[in-house]
Amino acid sequence: MSTLAPSRTEQSDDVPVDLRPLRRLKRNRLLLQLACVAVSLFMVVPFYLIAVAAFSSPAAMNEFPLRFLPTAFSVETMSTFLSSTGVGAGLINSLIVAVGTLALSLVVGAPAGYAIARYVFKGRDQYQLFLLFTRALPIVVLSVPLAELFLNVGMYDTPLAVVLLHTALTLPTTILVTASVFLAVPVDVEEAARIFGCGPLGAFGRVVLPLALPGISAASIFTFVLSWNEVLGATILTLNQRTLPATVLSSLSDSPLTFRFAGGFFLIVPALIFIAVMRKYLINMWGTTIR
């Protein structure tokens, strides 16, 4: 064998290198890049067009063909929108509702998620499934009985009513997402905190919560955006205390085109800002994933 071995390597030198797998690899990489660009454009182009329209003068909107570049920059459309009735109040209501929903769903949902992650109790699996039932019912079906209920208890047309509805809607995902987040925090790290002098709450606050923060912020993005954009329930449960989407929706049919674009743009921006702020908690904070 020792004399055979070198001759075999000499032989294999003569075999030409097959470049086809490499070419296929390069082609696939290129296709993947193109797919990424296409998906990104699909998301960005409508937003871009809305932004261009929102910052063009009303006159430019009526031109044909429409411009794709913001050449006729003007804040006239936006200022008209912002100063029209209901927008300021709607914005404040929307913020109250979104932040309230966020806080309430975390206060209720995170401990529930923690319990699902850490404790074995009877009916845990059924409970997790049952949670999703709230989302099985369409909001339209839920809203009318809810409106009646809130009318009866005197909470109709208050931001609190909308907060409660939105919390009910976001709670299942908040609980399930935070449960998986807490599951990813190693138990022995928590036990180490207990050994080294923390009570149950101390261990949670000093060790578990900081480690779970990225996941919790992901859950909160979802909650915030859902509450900010939810329009049907908010419209049915309020009359004067409308959230911004509800306000825009109710005046949509009898408002000019520019108002619609300005409204659309203004509805997107806060959600984007919130996502941008939370994003830094999403990506890992200590140079690694959770472990």
Binding site: P186, D188, V189, E191, A192, A193, R194, I195, F196, G197, C198, G199, P200, G202, V207, P210, L211, M285, W286, T288, I290, R291
Partner: peptide, 20 residues
Amino acid sequence: LPPNRRNLSMVFQSYAVFPH
């Protein structure tokens, strides 16, 4: 007694250092 009232210390198999 709960662990924090026993005045112990412990080294874990998985280290269990606090990543944050």
